[in-house]
Design a protein around this nucleic acid. Structure first.
Lengths: 145, 145
DNA sequence: ATAGAACTTCAAGTTCACTTGAAGTCAAGG
DNA sequence: CCTTGACTTCAAGTGAACTTGAAGTTCTAT
Protein backbone atom coordinates (compact mmCIF):
# COMPACT_ATOMS: atom_id res chain seq x y z
CA UNK A 1 0.00 0.00 0.00
CA UNK A 2 1.33 3.46 -0.84
CA UNK A 3 1.48 6.24 1.70
CA UNK A 4 -1.41 8.00 0.00
CA UNK A 5 -3.63 4.93 0.25
CA UNK A 6 -2.68 4.44 3.89
CA UNK A 7 -3.42 8.05 4.67
CA UNK A 8 -6.84 7.74 3.08
CA UNK A 9 -7.68 4.50 4.86
CA UNK A 10 -6.55 5.80 8.21
CA UNK A 11 -8.03 9.24 7.85
CA UNK A 12 -4.86 11.20 8.44
CA UNK A 13 -2.33 13.09 6.33
CA UNK A 14 0.67 11.53 4.62
CA UNK A 15 2.84 13.91 6.61
CA UNK A 16 1.52 12.34 9.79
CA UNK A 17 2.49 8.87 8.60
CA UNK A 18 6.01 10.03 7.79
CA UNK A 19 6.15 11.71 11.16
CA UNK A 20 5.05 8.50 12.91
CA UNK A 21 7.76 6.64 11.08
CA UNK A 22 10.40 9.15 12.12
CA UNK A 23 9.14 8.75 15.65
CA UNK A 24 9.48 5.00 15.46
CA UNK A 25 5.77 4.27 15.79
CA UNK A 26 5.30 2.55 12.45
CA UNK A 27 7.47 0.95 9.81
CA UNK A 28 7.51 0.64 6.05
CA UNK A 29 9.24 -1.21 3.23
CA UNK A 30 10.71 0.74 0.33
CA UNK A 31 10.45 0.30 -3.43
CA UNK A 32 13.62 0.39 -5.54
CA UNK A 33 12.93 4.05 -6.10
CA UNK A 34 12.73 4.69 -2.36
CA UNK A 35 8.99 5.11 -1.95
CA UNK A 36 7.21 3.71 1.09
CA UNK A 37 5.05 0.61 0.83
CA UNK A 38 2.99 -0.41 3.84
CA UNK A 39 1.95 -3.87 4.97
CA UNK A 40 -1.72 -4.39 5.83
CA UNK A 41 -0.72 -4.94 9.41
CA UNK A 42 0.29 -1.31 9.72
CA UNK A 43 -3.32 -0.19 9.40
CA UNK A 44 -4.08 -1.87 12.67
CA UNK A 45 -1.08 -0.25 14.23
CA UNK A 46 -2.20 3.18 13.12
CA UNK A 47 -5.71 2.44 14.36
CA UNK A 48 -4.23 1.61 17.72
CA UNK A 49 -2.32 4.87 17.75
CA UNK A 50 -5.44 6.83 16.93
CA UNK A 51 -7.56 5.23 19.57
CA UNK A 52 -4.79 5.53 22.14
CA UNK A 53 -4.62 9.24 21.43
CA UNK A 54 -8.32 9.52 22.00
CA UNK A 55 -7.84 7.80 25.33
CA UNK A 56 -5.39 10.58 26.09
CA UNK A 57 -1.98 9.00 25.68
CA UNK A 58 0.99 10.84 24.28
CA UNK A 59 2.97 9.48 21.36
CA UNK A 60 5.72 8.65 23.82
CA UNK A 61 3.32 6.55 25.87
CA UNK A 62 2.07 4.92 22.71
CA UNK A 63 5.55 4.11 21.48
CA UNK A 64 6.21 2.45 24.82
CA UNK A 65 3.00 0.45 24.56
CA UNK A 66 3.75 -0.65 20.99
CA UNK A 67 7.23 -1.73 21.98
CA UNK A 68 5.59 -4.40 24.12
CA UNK A 69 4.26 -6.17 21.05
CA UNK A 70 6.10 -9.32 19.96
CA UNK A 71 8.97 -8.42 17.66
CA UNK A 72 9.34 -11.54 15.60
CA UNK A 73 5.80 -12.30 14.49
CA UNK A 74 2.85 -10.26 13.37
CA UNK A 75 0.82 -9.32 16.44
CA UNK A 76 -2.26 -11.42 16.97
CA UNK A 77 -5.71 -10.35 18.00
CA UNK A 78 -4.94 -11.15 21.59
CA UNK A 79 -1.73 -9.10 21.51
CA UNK A 80 -3.83 -6.09 20.57
CA UNK A 81 -6.45 -6.98 23.14
CA UNK A 82 -3.85 -7.07 25.85
CA UNK A 83 -2.69 -3.58 24.92
CA UNK A 84 -6.18 -2.12 24.67
CA UNK A 85 -7.15 -3.61 27.99
CA UNK A 86 -4.39 -1.65 29.65
CA UNK A 87 -6.25 1.54 28.83
CA UNK A 88 -9.17 0.78 31.10
CA UNK A 89 -7.64 2.09 34.33
CA UNK A 90 -6.43 5.28 32.64
CA UNK A 91 -9.81 5.88 31.14
CA UNK A 92 -11.66 5.07 34.35
CA UNK A 93 -9.37 7.38 36.28
CA UNK A 94 -9.90 10.19 33.86
CA UNK A 95 -13.65 9.81 34.08
CA UNK A 96 -13.57 9.80 37.87
CA UNK A 97 -11.58 13.01 37.90
CA UNK A 98 -14.05 14.79 35.72
CA UNK A 99 -16.96 13.57 37.79
CA UNK A 100 -15.27 14.80 40.91
CA UNK A 101 -14.72 18.17 39.35
CA UNK A 102 -18.32 18.32 38.25
CA UNK A 103 -19.58 17.52 41.72
CA UNK A 104 -17.31 20.04 43.35
CA UNK A 105 -18.34 22.60 40.84
CA UNK A 106 -21.90 21.85 41.84
CA UNK A 107 -21.25 22.61 45.51
CA UNK A 108 -19.18 25.65 44.64
CA UNK A 109 -21.95 27.04 42.53
CA UNK A 110 -24.03 26.61 45.64
CA UNK A 111 -21.63 28.27 48.03
CA UNK A 112 -19.99 30.75 45.69
CA UNK A 113 -16.63 30.05 47.29
CA UNK A 114 -14.64 29.95 44.12
CA UNK A 115 -11.77 31.83 45.67
CA UNK A 116 -11.72 30.31 49.14
CA UNK A 117 -8.85 28.15 50.22
CA UNK A 118 -11.31 25.75 51.79
CA UNK A 119 -12.86 24.97 48.45
CA UNK A 120 -11.51 21.84 46.84
CA UNK A 121 -11.71 23.53 43.47
CA UNK A 122 -9.28 26.14 44.52
CA UNK A 123 -6.56 24.08 46.04
CA UNK A 124 -3.43 24.58 44.00
CA UNK A 125 -1.89 21.38 45.32
CA UNK A 126 -4.75 19.33 44.01
CA UNK A 127 -4.45 20.84 40.63
CA UNK A 128 -2.18 18.08 39.43
CA UNK A 129 -5.38 16.46 38.23
CA UNK A 130 -5.73 18.01 34.84
CA UNK A 131 -6.66 16.06 31.86
CA UNK A 132 -3.87 15.53 29.69
CA UNK A 133 -2.37 16.82 26.58
CA UNK A 134 -3.93 14.63 23.97
CA UNK A 135 -4.32 15.92 20.50
CA UNK A 136 -4.53 19.62 19.95
CA UNK A 137 -8.10 20.18 18.98
CA UNK A 138 -11.17 20.07 21.09
CA UNK A 139 -14.76 19.34 20.26
CA UNK A 140 -15.31 21.57 17.30
CA UNK A 141 -15.18 25.04 18.74
CA UNK A 142 -15.71 24.44 22.45
CA UNK A 143 -17.42 27.78 22.74
CA UNK A 144 -19.73 26.52 25.45
CA UNK A 145 -18.33 28.80 28.11
CA UNK B 1 -0.67 42.98 46.33
CA UNK B 2 2.63 42.53 44.49
CA UNK B 3 3.03 40.06 41.66
CA UNK B 4 5.11 37.80 43.89
CA UNK B 5 2.39 37.66 46.52
CA UNK B 6 -0.26 36.98 43.91
CA UNK B 7 1.80 34.23 42.38
CA UNK B 8 2.20 32.60 45.76
CA UNK B 9 -1.50 32.86 46.64
CA UNK B 10 -2.60 31.52 43.30
CA UNK B 11 0.01 28.81 43.04
CA UNK B 12 1.47 29.86 39.71
CA UNK B 13 4.56 31.67 38.47
CA UNK B 14 4.91 35.42 38.15
CA UNK B 15 5.64 34.90 34.49
CA UNK B 16 2.21 33.33 34.11
CA UNK B 17 0.54 36.36 35.67
CA UNK B 18 2.37 38.70 33.31
CA UNK B 19 1.40 36.44 30.46
CA UNK B 20 -2.27 36.50 31.49
CA UNK B 21 -2.12 40.28 31.59
CA UNK B 22 -0.60 40.44 28.12
CA UNK B 23 -3.39 38.16 27.00
CA UNK B 24 -6.02 40.43 28.50
CA UNK B 25 -7.23 37.95 31.08
CA UNK B 26 -6.36 39.99 34.15
CA UNK B 27 -5.52 43.57 34.99
CA UNK B 28 -3.27 45.43 37.38
CA UNK B 29 -2.55 48.92 38.69
CA UNK B 30 0.98 50.27 38.62
CA UNK B 31 3.14 51.97 41.24
CA UNK B 32 4.96 55.17 40.32
CA UNK B 33 7.95 53.01 39.56
CA UNK B 34 5.96 50.87 37.17
CA UNK B 35 5.53 47.75 39.28
CA UNK B 36 2.26 45.82 39.24
CA UNK B 37 -0.13 45.98 42.18
CA UNK B 38 -3.15 43.66 42.18
CA UNK B 39 -6.58 44.19 43.67
CA UNK B 40 -7.97 41.39 45.86
CA UNK B 41 -10.64 40.82 43.25
CA UNK B 42 -8.03 39.52 40.83
CA UNK B 43 -7.42 36.45 42.97
CA UNK B 44 -10.93 35.30 42.22
CA UNK B 45 -10.39 35.98 38.57
CA UNK B 46 -7.25 33.88 38.52
CA UNK B 47 -9.03 31.15 40.44
CA UNK B 48 -11.69 31.16 37.78
CA UNK B 49 -9.07 30.86 35.08
CA UNK B 50 -7.44 27.92 36.81
CA UNK B 51 -10.65 26.02 37.32
CA UNK B 52 -11.78 26.76 33.79
CA UNK B 53 -8.55 25.28 32.50
CA UNK B 54 -9.17 22.17 34.52
CA UNK B 55 -12.59 21.94 32.93
CA UNK B 56 -10.73 21.96 29.63
CA UNK B 57 -11.21 25.46 28.27
CA UNK B 58 -8.54 27.30 26.32
CA UNK B 59 -7.38 30.74 27.34
CA UNK B 60 -9.28 32.09 24.37
CA UNK B 61 -12.49 30.52 25.64
CA UNK B 62 -11.76 31.86 29.10
CA UNK B 63 -11.13 35.35 27.85
CA UNK B 64 -14.49 35.22 26.11
CA UNK B 65 -16.18 34.02 29.29
CA UNK B 66 -14.55 36.72 31.40
CA UNK B 67 -15.60 39.39 28.95
CA UNK B 68 -19.18 38.61 29.89
CA UNK B 69 -18.64 39.91 33.40
CA UNK B 70 -20.03 43.38 34.19
CA UNK B 71 -17.48 46.02 33.25
CA UNK B 72 -18.39 48.82 35.60
CA UNK B 73 -18.67 47.11 38.97
CA UNK B 74 -16.75 44.40 40.76
CA UNK B 75 -18.34 41.07 39.85
CA UNK B 76 -20.61 39.65 42.51
CA UNK B 77 -20.90 36.12 43.74
CA UNK B 78 -23.79 35.50 41.40
CA UNK B 79 -21.84 36.83 38.43
CA UNK B 80 -19.24 34.17 39.09
CA UNK B 81 -21.91 31.57 39.67
CA UNK B 82 -23.46 32.31 36.33
CA UNK B 83 -20.12 31.79 34.62
CA UNK B 84 -19.28 28.60 36.46
CA UNK B 85 -22.70 27.18 35.79
CA UNK B 86 -22.02 27.44 32.07
CA UNK B 87 -19.34 24.79 32.45
CA UNK B 88 -21.76 22.06 33.36
CA UNK B 89 -22.76 21.08 29.82
CA UNK B 90 -19.15 21.05 28.66
CA UNK B 91 -18.12 18.92 31.55
CA UNK B 92 -21.07 16.57 31.21
CA UNK B 93 -20.39 16.22 27.50
CA UNK B 94 -16.77 15.42 28.09
CA UNK B 95 -17.65 12.78 30.64
CA UNK B 96 -20.20 11.19 28.31
CA UNK B 97 -17.61 10.97 25.55
CA UNK B 98 -15.14 9.20 27.71
CA UNK B 99 -17.77 6.79 28.97
CA UNK B 100 -18.76 6.03 25.41
CA UNK B 101 -15.17 5.37 24.51
CA UNK B 102 -14.76 3.12 27.52
CA UNK B 103 -17.81 1.10 26.60
CA UNK B 104 -16.77 0.75 23.00
CA UNK B 105 -13.34 -0.25 24.10
CA UNK B 106 -15.02 -2.92 26.18
CA UNK B 107 -16.83 -4.41 23.21
CA UNK B 108 -13.77 -4.12 21.02
CA UNK B 109 -11.69 -5.99 23.50
CA UNK B 110 -14.37 -8.63 23.17
CA UNK B 111 -14.45 -8.68 19.39
CA UNK B 112 -10.87 -7.76 18.63
CA UNK B 113 -12.01 -5.60 15.75
CA UNK B 114 -9.70 -2.72 16.39
CA UNK B 115 -8.98 -2.23 12.72
CA UNK B 116 -12.39 -2.89 11.23
CA UNK B 117 -14.37 -0.12 9.65
CA UNK B 118 -17.46 -1.38 11.39
CA UNK B 119 -16.00 -0.69 14.79
CA UNK B 120 -17.07 2.59 16.27
CA UNK B 121 -13.60 3.04 17.68
CA UNK B 122 -12.11 3.08 14.27
CA UNK B 123 -14.29 5.49 12.48
CA UNK B 124 -12.17 8.43 11.44
CA UNK B 125 -15.20 10.67 11.06
CA UNK B 126 -16.17 10.16 14.66
CA UNK B 127 -12.76 11.05 15.83
CA UNK B 128 -13.73 14.64 16.36
CA UNK B 129 -14.37 13.57 19.94
CA UNK B 130 -10.98 14.06 21.46
CA UNK B 131 -10.51 15.69 24.72
CA UNK B 132 -9.13 18.96 24.42
CA UNK B 133 -5.91 20.72 24.79
CA UNK B 134 -6.01 21.79 28.36
CA UNK B 135 -2.81 22.36 30.17
CA UNK B 136 0.24 20.53 29.02
CA UNK B 137 0.84 18.03 31.73
CA UNK B 138 -1.03 14.91 32.54
CA UNK B 139 -1.49 13.00 35.73
CA UNK B 140 2.06 12.59 36.85
CA UNK B 141 3.62 10.36 34.27
CA UNK B 142 0.63 8.70 32.64
CA UNK B 143 2.68 5.60 32.07
CA UNK B 144 -0.30 3.35 32.54
CA UNK B 145 -0.25 2.05 29.00
C1' DA C 1 8.40 8.35 -24.15
C1' DT C 2 6.43 11.56 -21.52
C1' DA C 3 3.02 14.12 -18.67
C1' DG C 4 1.59 14.65 -14.32
C1' DA C 5 0.28 12.84 -10.03
C1' DA C 6 2.35 11.04 -6.20
C1' DC C 7 6.15 10.42 -3.96
C1' DT C 8 11.08 11.76 -1.54
C1' DT C 9 13.95 14.54 2.12
C1' DC C 10 14.97 18.22 5.04
C1' DA C 11 14.28 22.45 7.31
C1' DA C 12 11.32 25.48 9.15
C1' DG C 13 6.70 26.92 10.68
C1' DT C 14 2.33 26.42 13.73
C1' DT C 15 -0.42 26.49 18.14
C1' DC C 16 -0.92 26.64 23.07
C1' DA C 17 0.45 28.03 27.44
C1' DC C 18 3.83 29.33 29.26
C1' DT C 19 9.15 29.70 30.80
C1' DT C 20 13.81 31.48 30.43
C1' DG C 21 17.28 34.87 29.85
C1' DA C 22 19.32 39.30 29.41
C1' DA C 23 19.72 43.73 30.79
C1' DG C 24 18.18 46.91 33.55
C1' DT C 25 14.99 49.42 37.47
C1' DC C 26 12.48 49.74 41.99
C1' DA C 27 11.49 49.17 46.95
C1' DA C 28 12.39 48.11 51.72
C1' DG C 29 15.47 47.19 55.59
C1' DG C 30 19.61 48.38 57.99
C1' DC D 1 22.70 55.84 51.39
C1' DC D 2 23.21 51.38 49.93
C1' DT D 3 22.51 46.69 49.31
C1' DT D 4 19.64 43.13 47.91
C1' DG D 5 15.76 40.92 46.42
C1' DA D 6 11.88 41.68 43.79
C1' DC D 7 10.46 43.72 40.12
C1' DT D 8 10.43 45.59 34.77
C1' DT D 9 10.40 44.65 29.46
C1' DC D 10 11.32 42.21 25.42
C1' DA D 11 12.83 38.51 22.70
C1' DA D 12 13.48 33.95 22.24
C1' DG D 13 12.89 29.12 23.74
C1' DT D 14 9.96 24.82 25.02
C1' DG D 15 7.30 20.56 23.86
C1' DA D 16 3.72 18.04 21.62
C1' DA D 17 2.05 16.69 17.32
C1' DC D 18 2.07 17.72 13.33
C1' DT D 19 1.98 20.77 8.77
C1' DT D 20 4.07 23.42 5.10
C1' DG D 21 7.36 24.49 1.63
C1' DA D 22 11.09 23.84 -1.45
C1' DA D 23 13.46 21.25 -4.55
C1' DG D 24 13.86 17.22 -6.53
C1' DT D 25 12.56 11.99 -7.87
C1' DT D 26 9.48 8.03 -9.07
C1' DC D 27 5.44 5.68 -10.79
C1' DT D 28 1.76 4.93 -13.89
C1' DA D 29 -1.11 5.63 -17.64
C1' DT D 30 -1.36 6.91 -22.25
Amino acid sequence: MTIGEMAERCGLATSALRFYEDEGLIDSARTNGGQRRYAREVIRRVAFIQVAQTVGLSLTDIRAALSRLPNGRTPTKSDWQRLSRSWRPTLDGRIRELELLRDELESCIGCGCLSLKACALYNPDDRASRFGPGPRYLLGDSSTA
